[in-house]
């Protein structure tokens, strides 16, 4: 899967590029929308105007790919929660670890840089 950059800055260019994907994820704050999404993910993506790449990233749960397409972690996390995935799972995806390894790294004091 896609390799993550060091930092994702959710700047205006990113939020404009990621508008459709973020908007889809934002809609999942409504329980009815959560049901609709689950019933037919592809149709839900189409109704929200996602580009083919954005749709693929959502359907494949390519968490890093979503960020590269301009999505923000605060939006995509709503989709992860719907899947029953934790922020530690996502942390593992971004850093090439399992959720357990990632959680252990945090419990050991967190990852250090610089």
């Amino acid at each position: 899967m896609t390799e993550a950059r060091d930092n994702y800055l959710n700047d205006l260019t990113a939020t404009r590029r990621g508008y459709a994907i973020n908007r889809l994820c934002a809609s999942l704050t409504d329980p009815d929308n959560r049901r609709r999404f689950t019933a037919d993910e592809a149709a839900y993506c189409d109704a929200h105007g996602l580009s083919p790449e954005q749709k693929r990233a959502i359907l494949d749960r390519d968490w890093t790919g979503m960020l590269d397409l301009g999505a923000s972690i605060f939006y995509t996390f709503k989709l992860a929660v719907l899947d029953g995935k934790s922020m530690q799972h996502l942390g593992g995806v971004f850093t090439g670890m399992s959720a357990e390894e990632f959680t252990a790294a945090l419990r050991a004091g967190g990852r250090r840089f610089g």
Partner: peptide, 15 residues
């Protein structure tokens, strides 16, 4: 306090 959710630096802690 210090934290980063996304990207290769996810899990950053700077005590």
């Amino acid at each position: 306090m210090s934290h980063q959710l996304a990207g290769a630096r996810a899990g950053l802690i700077n005590s």
